[in-house]
Design a binder for these strands. Structure first.
Lengths: 227, 227
DNA sequence: AAGGCTAATATGTCTATACATAATACAAGT
DNA sequence: ACTTGTATTATGTATAGACATATTAGCCTT
């Protein structure tokens, strides 16, 4: 025993117990290593983990301080829709409703950091579970990142192709609740203005902006995360 | 150069380039260390990071393999509502609409892992930004985790008190879109059946189940995450 | 063939030491 | 006073070597 996880636990205990108050400086790695009778690397491992968890903030020379407000972090595993459906024990299928190149609307180009009205590939895909509408995917795709013989998105969904073939570096997701538009109501087979859980995602790759997606989930959908 | 981030980048490149295909075994740490001319610990750091990111899976003796399906992970910083509002440059206030102890409904006790109809503290809080409804918080709280002179939730919101005083160990959040109920419509000052973004959160602490919360956000609310 | 023991092996972690890097404090020069 | 350079210091990372632990392959027994 006296592994890095024990060190982490003890440090966390002292923070919770207000022995080291929020915003306060805690002893340096060297001091803690000596106190606990372990190597500095072990203390470093423990503190690095706590910093990742948002419990403390660390800066060179300035030392380590207890975070003013402990932020709780939850992790979302962004699923490939096909597997998400299969994991529910349902059969997966999808329909490519639209596939054309056209100038993207301003909100899309703006978020991707592309010039206004850039011609992007527009894809509309209806994902289905057991033949019933599951998610309506609306996607704008930067054609510059596609290989020359472009993949056939009628066979492999764009979603899945991108995950396995493009090395994404960063992005963001936002969840909102929106009333179903006339088009969404029709495609998903639900009454207009039904409350829909909508996810909007922007992703940037090493070779520039990749894609902007909007996922309108069928009613009742839950996005689950753990921490 | 030749730091652990360089090693990580090179390993990632080979995975993307299909040199090490999905599901395939990659060379052991010792071998990679030798190839890159670094210590094993450095390779370990790089691979551990990739494992955390979900790109590879590692098991003792079995070795390291490329994940079949690279899962993208996004991190959500669960905000303390007060700070969330302040960050938007708005004034924060809240109203404690209800505070009583009563037997909790079955779905709540079930999720918390408590016996049916356990008496729990029920709190209903309306959080406001610039005096306008922001979030309606509905909370069931396990009284067993509270200190003897229980905190005054009319002064410090339960949300905030818990974050700073209870060491939570695990929990889960789920987001859904739901039509506003009559009560929610009234309290939030919106038409009934408006699409609401709802977050449901269950948290477990070291001393047993802590709380179940439902947050009904005002229309237009976005939950933002990055990866 | 089935089950159980054992040895081999890849990852996990710790130690001690060293150098790198960033941020600060302080002194020197303008 | 203001800027600039420099020393100091805490964290970040690297190294080599060692032991711990989980898991598997293969052998051995029944």
């Amino acid at each position: 025993m006296q592994g890095w996880e024990d060190i982490r636990a003890e440090v966390l205990r002292r923070i919770r117990a207000r022995i080291w108050p929020p915003g306060g400086l805690i002893p340096g790695e060297e001091a803690l290593a000596q106190e606990f009778g372990v190597a500095r690397a072990t203390v470093n491992r423990a503190l690095r983990d706590l910093a990742e968890a948002g419990v403390i903030t660390r800066r060179k020379r300035a030392g380590t301080r207890v975070a003013e407000l402990p932020v709780r972090r939850a992790r979302l595993d962004i699923p490939v829709i096909r597997l998400d459906v299969l994991a529910r024990g349902q059969a997966y299928s999808f329909d490519l409703l639209a596939d054309r190149v056209q100038p993207a609307p301003v909100p899309v180009t703006a978020r991707l950091g592309l010039p206004e009205a850039s011609p992007l590939r527009y894809l509309e895909t209806l994902h289905m579970a057991d033949g019933r509408p599951y998610v309506l995917e609306t996607r704008w795709l930067n054609p510059a990142i596609l290989p020359d013989p472009a993949p056939d998105f009628a066979r492999v969904s764009a979603n899945e192709w991108l995950v396995t073939h493009v090395s994404l570096v960063s992005g963001d997701i936002a969840f909102t609740a929106e009333p179903a538009s006339a088009r969404e109501a029709e495609v998903l087979g639900i009454p207009e203005a039904t409350a829909l859980l909508v996810a909007e995602r922007t992703t940037q790759g090493t070779g520039g902006p990749v894609t902007w997606v909007r996922l309108a989930h069928a009613p009742g959908h839950r996005v689950q995360m753990t921490f």
